[in-house]
Design a protein around this nucleic acid. Structure first.
Length: 189
DNA sequence: TTGTGTTTTATTGCCTCC
DNA sequence: GGAGGCAATAAAACACAA
Protein backbone atom coordinates (compact mmCIF):
# COMPACT_ATOMS: atom_id res chain seq x y z
CA UNK A 1 0.00 0.00 0.00
CA UNK A 2 1.41 3.39 -0.97
CA UNK A 3 1.77 6.27 1.40
CA UNK A 4 -1.18 8.06 -0.17
CA UNK A 5 -3.40 5.00 -0.14
CA UNK A 6 -2.61 4.58 3.52
CA UNK A 7 -3.49 8.18 4.20
CA UNK A 8 -6.72 7.94 2.21
CA UNK A 9 -7.78 4.84 4.08
CA UNK A 10 -7.05 6.44 7.40
CA UNK A 11 -8.89 9.57 6.35
CA UNK A 12 -11.97 7.66 5.30
CA UNK A 13 -11.94 5.75 8.56
CA UNK A 14 -11.49 8.81 10.68
CA UNK A 15 -13.22 11.56 8.73
CA UNK A 16 -16.19 11.67 11.08
CA UNK A 17 -13.89 12.25 14.03
CA UNK A 18 -12.80 15.65 12.91
CA UNK A 19 -14.29 19.01 13.55
CA UNK A 20 -15.53 21.32 10.82
CA UNK A 21 -13.29 23.30 8.48
CA UNK A 22 -12.28 26.71 9.78
CA UNK A 23 -14.62 29.64 9.07
CA UNK A 24 -13.99 31.47 5.84
CA UNK A 25 -11.82 34.54 5.94
CA UNK A 26 -9.82 33.33 8.90
CA UNK A 27 -6.21 32.29 8.84
CA UNK A 28 -5.60 28.61 8.52
CA UNK A 29 -6.29 26.99 11.85
CA UNK A 30 -5.23 23.49 12.61
CA UNK A 31 -8.29 21.38 13.06
CA UNK A 32 -8.32 19.65 16.34
CA UNK A 33 -8.74 15.92 16.35
CA UNK A 34 -11.83 14.75 18.10
CA UNK A 35 -11.32 12.37 20.91
CA UNK A 36 -11.79 8.78 19.98
CA UNK A 37 -15.10 7.44 21.17
CA UNK A 38 -14.90 4.74 23.81
CA UNK A 39 -15.47 1.25 22.51
CA UNK A 40 -14.83 2.12 18.91
CA UNK A 41 -13.26 -1.17 17.95
CA UNK A 42 -12.48 -0.17 14.35
CA UNK A 43 -10.38 2.70 15.51
CA UNK A 44 -8.84 0.94 18.49
CA UNK A 45 -5.09 1.04 18.09
CA UNK A 46 -3.13 -0.97 20.56
CA UNK A 47 -0.16 1.02 21.69
CA UNK A 48 2.79 -1.20 22.36
CA UNK A 49 5.93 -0.05 24.07
CA UNK A 50 9.11 -0.97 22.34
CA UNK A 51 11.43 -3.31 24.17
CA UNK A 52 14.60 -2.05 25.80
CA UNK A 53 16.65 -3.73 23.09
CA UNK A 54 14.65 -2.10 20.32
CA UNK A 55 14.98 1.31 21.95
CA UNK A 56 18.69 0.80 22.51
CA UNK A 57 19.16 -0.16 18.88
CA UNK A 58 17.17 2.82 17.64
CA UNK A 59 19.01 5.19 19.99
CA UNK A 60 22.31 3.92 18.66
CA UNK A 61 21.22 4.56 15.08
CA UNK A 62 19.76 7.93 15.98
CA UNK A 63 23.15 8.87 17.41
CA UNK A 64 24.75 8.11 14.08
CA UNK A 65 22.22 9.93 11.90
CA UNK A 66 19.14 11.79 13.01
CA UNK A 67 17.33 11.59 9.70
CA UNK A 68 16.04 8.45 8.19
CA UNK A 69 16.00 7.71 4.50
CA UNK A 70 13.78 5.01 3.08
CA UNK A 71 16.36 2.24 2.68
CA UNK A 72 17.72 2.71 6.15
CA UNK A 73 14.23 2.72 7.61
CA UNK A 74 13.43 -0.62 6.01
CA UNK A 75 16.72 -2.05 7.17
CA UNK A 76 16.31 -0.92 10.77
CA UNK A 77 12.73 -2.12 10.84
CA UNK A 78 13.67 -5.61 9.68
CA UNK A 79 16.62 -5.71 12.10
CA UNK A 80 14.43 -5.28 15.15
CA UNK A 81 11.17 -6.68 13.85
CA UNK A 82 9.17 -3.48 13.73
CA UNK A 83 6.89 -1.95 11.16
CA UNK A 84 8.83 0.63 9.07
CA UNK A 85 6.11 3.11 10.02
CA UNK A 86 6.92 2.56 13.69
CA UNK A 87 10.56 3.24 12.99
CA UNK A 88 9.80 6.51 11.24
CA UNK A 89 7.40 7.52 14.00
CA UNK A 90 10.05 6.72 16.59
CA UNK A 91 12.62 8.84 14.75
CA UNK A 92 10.15 11.66 14.36
CA UNK A 93 9.35 11.69 18.06
CA UNK A 94 12.99 11.27 18.97
CA UNK A 95 13.91 14.29 16.83
CA UNK A 96 11.24 16.32 18.62
CA UNK A 97 12.65 15.31 22.01
CA UNK A 98 16.18 16.07 20.86
CA UNK A 99 15.13 19.47 19.61
CA UNK A 100 13.47 20.31 22.91
CA UNK A 101 16.57 19.30 24.79
CA UNK A 102 18.76 21.37 22.49
CA UNK A 103 16.56 24.40 23.02
CA UNK A 104 16.70 23.87 26.77
CA UNK A 105 20.49 23.70 26.65
CA UNK A 106 20.71 26.76 24.42
CA UNK A 107 18.47 28.64 26.82
CA UNK A 108 20.67 27.72 29.78
CA UNK A 109 23.81 28.80 27.88
CA UNK A 110 22.26 32.13 26.90
CA UNK A 111 21.01 32.68 30.41
CA UNK A 112 24.45 32.05 31.82
CA UNK A 113 26.00 34.43 29.29
CA UNK A 114 23.40 37.04 30.10
CA UNK A 115 24.07 36.71 33.82
CA UNK A 116 27.80 37.21 33.39
CA UNK A 117 27.24 40.22 31.15
CA UNK A 118 25.01 41.74 33.82
CA UNK A 119 27.73 41.22 36.44
CA UNK A 120 30.34 42.66 34.09
CA UNK A 121 28.11 45.66 33.40
CA UNK A 122 27.81 46.27 37.13
CA UNK A 123 31.58 46.17 37.52
CA UNK A 124 32.05 48.55 34.62
CA UNK A 125 29.51 50.99 36.02
CA UNK A 126 31.44 51.03 39.28
CA UNK A 127 34.63 51.57 37.34
CA UNK A 128 33.07 54.49 35.48
CA UNK A 129 32.03 56.09 38.78
CA UNK A 130 35.53 55.70 40.18
CA UNK A 131 37.10 57.18 37.07
CA UNK A 132 34.69 60.10 37.04
CA UNK A 133 35.61 60.80 40.66
CA UNK A 134 39.30 60.75 39.80
CA UNK A 135 38.69 63.08 36.90
CA UNK A 136 36.87 65.55 39.15
CA UNK A 137 39.74 65.41 41.63
CA UNK A 138 42.26 66.03 38.87
CA UNK A 139 40.27 68.99 37.58
CA UNK A 140 40.02 70.34 41.10
CA UNK A 141 43.77 70.01 41.53
CA UNK A 142 44.42 71.84 38.28
CA UNK A 143 42.16 74.67 39.35
CA UNK A 144 44.01 75.02 42.63
CA UNK A 145 47.40 74.98 40.94
CA UNK A 146 46.52 77.47 38.22
CA UNK A 147 44.90 79.79 40.79
CA UNK A 148 48.00 79.95 43.05
CA UNK A 149 50.67 80.18 40.35
CA UNK A 150 53.01 83.11 39.44
CA UNK A 151 53.33 84.77 42.86
CA UNK A 152 56.68 83.34 43.84
CA UNK A 153 59.52 82.87 41.35
CA UNK A 154 61.28 80.52 43.74
CA UNK A 155 58.45 78.06 43.52
CA UNK A 156 58.40 77.89 39.72
CA UNK A 157 60.30 74.63 39.57
CA UNK A 158 58.02 72.80 41.98
CA UNK A 159 54.97 74.42 40.38
CA UNK A 160 55.99 73.19 36.98
CA UNK A 161 56.51 69.74 38.33
CA UNK A 162 53.12 69.63 40.03
CA UNK A 163 51.46 70.99 36.88
CA UNK A 164 53.09 68.30 34.80
CA UNK A 165 51.87 65.59 37.10
CA UNK A 166 48.38 67.04 37.11
CA UNK A 167 48.34 67.13 33.30
CA UNK A 168 49.48 63.58 33.16
CA UNK A 169 46.87 62.50 35.69
CA UNK A 170 44.13 64.26 33.78
CA UNK A 171 45.29 62.81 30.48
CA UNK A 172 45.31 59.33 31.96
CA UNK A 173 41.86 59.78 33.47
CA UNK A 174 40.42 60.98 30.19
CA UNK A 175 42.20 58.28 28.26
CA UNK A 176 40.88 55.55 30.56
CA UNK A 177 37.41 57.02 30.59
CA UNK A 178 37.21 57.40 26.80
CA UNK A 179 38.68 53.97 26.27
CA UNK A 180 36.14 52.49 28.58
CA UNK A 181 33.32 54.29 26.82
CA UNK A 182 34.57 53.02 23.46
CA UNK A 183 34.65 49.51 24.78
CA UNK A 184 31.18 49.78 26.23
CA UNK A 185 29.82 51.13 22.96
CA UNK A 186 31.57 48.43 21.02
CA UNK A 187 30.00 45.66 23.06
CA UNK A 188 26.69 47.42 23.54
CA UNK A 189 27.00 47.37 27.33
C1' DT B 1 -5.93 0.80 44.89
C1' DT B 2 -6.48 5.03 42.86
C1' DG B 3 -5.76 9.59 41.32
C1' DT B 4 -2.49 12.33 38.96
C1' DG B 5 1.50 13.75 36.47
C1' DT B 6 4.94 12.31 32.99
C1' DT B 7 6.65 9.76 29.09
C1' DT B 8 6.11 7.28 24.97
C1' DT B 9 3.79 5.87 20.84
C1' DA B 10 0.69 7.12 17.25
C1' DT B 11 -2.22 10.25 14.38
C1' DT B 12 -3.38 14.29 11.82
C1' DG B 13 -2.95 18.47 9.05
C1' DC B 14 -0.03 21.37 6.87
C1' DC B 15 4.20 22.55 4.52
C1' DT B 16 8.25 22.00 1.48
C1' DC B 17 10.89 19.79 -1.91
C1' DC B 18 11.57 17.30 -6.05
C1' DG C 1 1.22 14.89 -6.90
C1' DG C 2 3.90 11.96 -3.82
C1' DA C 3 7.11 11.53 -0.03
C1' DG C 4 8.73 12.98 4.06
C1' DG C 5 9.25 16.44 7.84
C1' DC C 6 7.31 19.02 11.67
C1' DA C 7 4.02 20.86 15.22
C1' DA C 8 0.25 19.81 17.79
C1' DT C 9 -2.33 16.62 19.92
C1' DA C 10 -4.45 12.17 21.63
C1' DA C 11 -4.16 8.40 24.32
C1' DA C 12 -1.88 4.32 26.17
C1' DA C 13 1.62 3.07 29.37
C1' DC C 14 4.11 3.99 33.21
C1' DA C 15 5.65 6.06 37.84
C1' DC C 16 4.55 7.22 42.22
C1' DA C 17 2.58 9.45 46.22
C1' DA C 18 -1.28 9.11 49.36
Amino acid sequence: MTHVEEKMLLSSLTAEFYSQTPPQGEAKVKRRRRKKARGDVDMEVKKRRLTDEQVKFLEMNFGEEKKLESGRKMHLASEIGLDPKQVSVWFQNRRARWKNKQMEEDYMKLKSMHDSVVVEKCHLENEVLKLKKRLEEAEELIKKISGGMGSSPSSSFSNNRVEGEADQLMYMSEYSYNGLMDWMCLYGV
